[in-house]
Amino acid sequence: MLPWAVRRTRLPLLSLRCVDCRSESATTGEGRFRVNANGKLLDVWLLVRCVSCDRTSKLTVHERAPVRSFDPAELDGYHANDQGLVAARLLDPLLARRNRFTLDWAGAWELDAPSGWSDEAWPVRVEVAFDDPVPVRPEWLIAQGLGFSRSEVARRIKSDTPLRRTRSTGFSFTVMPLD
């Protein structure tokens, strides 16, 4: 069995309309949080910047949350602009739904596939793992990883999962030998 991995190379862009220039792309840049205290309640925002006009906007992470409801390590992460916490919040589907944005993964990921797979005994079983929820069509990913055309993928690949449906979780497939 050959292991493949889909890994993030950078944080994805956000598809979010800018209120100034009406552009559809924003970025988290270096990834910064803003924490505001109002008595014993905290507001936490993730700051994003428009790629076209550089306007900064805020995505609500927590709104009017009691200070005691925060894990101390998480609160320290917000204050220190922890990059792991930035990525975790940005990839959270609830945050995306609440703030009405989608992620644009174009150019933000890579496929780590070992070469020399043709030396394996046929048929070859491949296991694909995703480090982050990158939406990609398995058919396209397999074609890129093996250097096959899409028609050759249809002929030589056997899989339990539909290859034409976009996925963001792991799957496996079998490469059959040439007839």
Rank of each mutant, 00 (worst) to 15 (best):
C50W: 06
S52V: 06
C53N: 05
R55E: 09
R55A: 08
K58Y: 05
E63A: 10
E63Y: 07
E63Q: 11
A65N: 05
V67Y: 11
R68C: 07
S69Q: 14
G77R: 14
A80C: 11
N81Q: 04
D82L: 02
Q83M: 08
G84K: 06
R89V: 03
L90H: 00
L90T: 01
D92K: 04
D92I: 03
P93Q: 06
L94D: 12
L95M: 12
A96F: 00
A96N: 01
R97H: 08
R98Y: 05
F101C: 03
T102M: 08
L103A: 10
W105Y: 09
A106S: 15
A106P: 06
A106Y: 10
E110C: 08
P114V: 10
S118E: 15
S118L: 13
S118Q: 15
D119R: 15
W122H: 07
P123I: 02
V126W: 05
E127R: 15
E127A: 13
F130H: 13
D131Q: 15
V134G: 07
V134Y: 10
P135Y: 03
V136R: 14
V136D: 12
L141A: 11
I142R: 02
G147S: 07
G147Q: 10
G147R: 08
S149I: 07
S149E: 08
R150Q: 11
S151T: 14
V153C: 10
A154T: 11
R155G: 02
R156V: 03
S159C: 15
S159I: 06
T161L: 11
P162A: 11
T166M: 13
T166S: 14
R167S: 13
R167L: 14
T169H: 15
G170Y: 08
G170R: 05
F171N: 00
F171K: 06
F173H: 01
F173A: 02
M176W: 00
M176S: 09
P177T: 02
P177K: 03
D179M: 04
